[in-house]
Amino acid sequence: MPKSISEEEQMLAAGYVLGHLSASEINQFGAALANNPELQAEVDTLQSAYDKLPQGLPPVTPPPGLKAKIIESFAAESIANPIVNSIIDSSKSTQSEIAPTSNQVFDWGRILAGIGLLVGGLLAFDNFNLRQELQVAQQINPQAVASVLNQPKSRLLTLSTKEDRIVGNILFTPGNWKQIIVSAKNLPPLPVDRVYRMWLELANGQVIPCGEFKTDDHNSIFIKLNATQKPPAGVKAKGVFITIDKSNDPLQPTGERVIQGTI
């Protein structure tokens, strides 16, 4: 206890933190607090001590599947990150208290509406950068995301660099490789004459091209790709990988694999 605070003041400070004081005591103590930084510091420290109580609980181990559930929900939120987060942020004043729960992890209606708004907003402007972004945004038709999400078997796959840095996710439906939603941020910068190409790798070693793309000015993407061939019946997919190639290189998966995701 600081020397300038009496025992009586300290008891009052404890009562204040614990909500024991009467209205008149609160008024009196509040006035004292305003003029005494040490007393305020004492109140803060007592509050901190009270807030530490849960640290003394005998620890209970969370259910084993909980972590995976949280990570999965986070990934689901992140899938639309590059474009959609800015939309959500812009309306944060009304949304900041909306907390996802297991029943309401992600408000897809809001997101899809946001994407629509973004496309509409972009159409209102006419400069080169925005038109570039618009091309990306148009590729990701909101209905495409919704249709994949509506598939009961739809899955998320994490995309990582060779250094194991997570850069994004793909959303897909196993067996249906017509719509692969790709969302990634902070991709390695691309030289001017190069493009990214994504490939689907099958368990039998076959590799199927899924399309090529460039990132936006922030090295991000949010696009829809599709496998150019249907995998043979009964052959499962092993994963996807992304290479950097010259745009006129033959369509062979020989470029350096910079990003991959394993199923």
């Binding site: 206890m1 404890a14 009562g15 901190s48 001590a49």
Partner: peptide
């Protein structure tokens, strides 16, 4: 009231 206030003050002192 006394137990609560004294307990909190003691806890604060122990932690500090």
């Amino acid at each position: 009231k006394t137990h609560m206030r004294q307990g909190l003050i003691k806890l604060r002192q122990l932690l500090q």
